[in-house]
């Protein structure tokens, strides 16, 4: 009995210490005020340019697959994700048109015809624009510490549920842009995108969203 009691105590102590110790995030008290602030700050972002490092952890692999590239967003629905290392892959969303270019070929489809691309690009844009907080596709919990907000998105839709257990988004309190995005898959695999060298509201040419 004492043994069981000790085990229970240890589990309770660990579950209490782990999240607090790792991140020091506490729930945001005034969610309405946060939403309003986040929306107004995001609305002021007309364009965003940054580099990113993507780490993909696959349960069967000891090492992570690390790729690098650049990210460009321009209001209201234009996105360019370019992977440069260790493979080349270009994803461009220009309103409803998605163009993909890899080492083999280039293809262009309507975003609405490809659910997966639509979902990923929409999620990325929603994070940048702040719409993610009002999304009907996720339940959102918001936490904060001194430097950042931490959003936990739990999918409501079946298709999203089959892919993701949850999505973690870390937003800088300095400029209200995404520092880090974690896609936690139902299989236990995880993809992390870390955005660096962010430049806000610099001119972004139309040509950026075209494939040569």
């Amino acid at each position: 009995m004492i043994k069981h009691y000790n085990c229970l105590l240890f589990v309770l102590l660990f579950s209490w210490l782990a999240p607090a110790g790792a991140q020091n995030y506490t729930p945001v008290k005034n969610l309405v005020a946060f939403k309003s602030l986040f929306s107004s700050k995001s609305a002021a972002i007309n364009s965003l340019k940054s580099d990113f490092v993507q780490e993909k952890s696959i349960s069967m692999l000891e090492n992570k697959i690390i790729s690098e590239g650049s990210f460009i967003y321009r209001k209201s629905n234009r996105l360019r994700l370019e992977y440069r290392k260790p493979y080349t892959f270009l994803f461009i969303m220009d309103n409803d048109r998605v163009t993909i270019k890899n080492s083999q070929q280039t293809s262009s489809v309507s975003a609405s015809s490809n659910k997966l691309y639509k979902m990923i690009s929409q999620l990325t844009i929603n994070c940048v624009t702040g719409n993610v907080l009002n999304s009907k596709e996720f339940d959102v919990d918001v936490f904060e510490n001194a430097r950042a907000y931490f959003l936990v998105l739990k999918p409501r839709q079946n298709m999203l549920k089959s892919l993701f257990d949850r999505i973690n988004i870390f937003i800088s309190k300095n400029d209200f842009t995404v520092d880090r995005l974690e896609l936690m898959e139902t299989s236990g695999d995880k993809t992390t995108l870390v955005f660096t060298d962010k430049k806000i509201n610099i001119p972004v040419d139309d040509e950026v969203f075209k494939v040569n």
Binding site: K56, I58, M60, F91, I120, F164, L183, S187, D189, T191
Partner: peptide, 15 residues
Amino acid sequence: IRLVMNSEMGPKLVD
């Protein structure tokens, strides 16, 4: 042989 197919931008599609 284990086969895992992922999209470049994230989620696993087939395992």
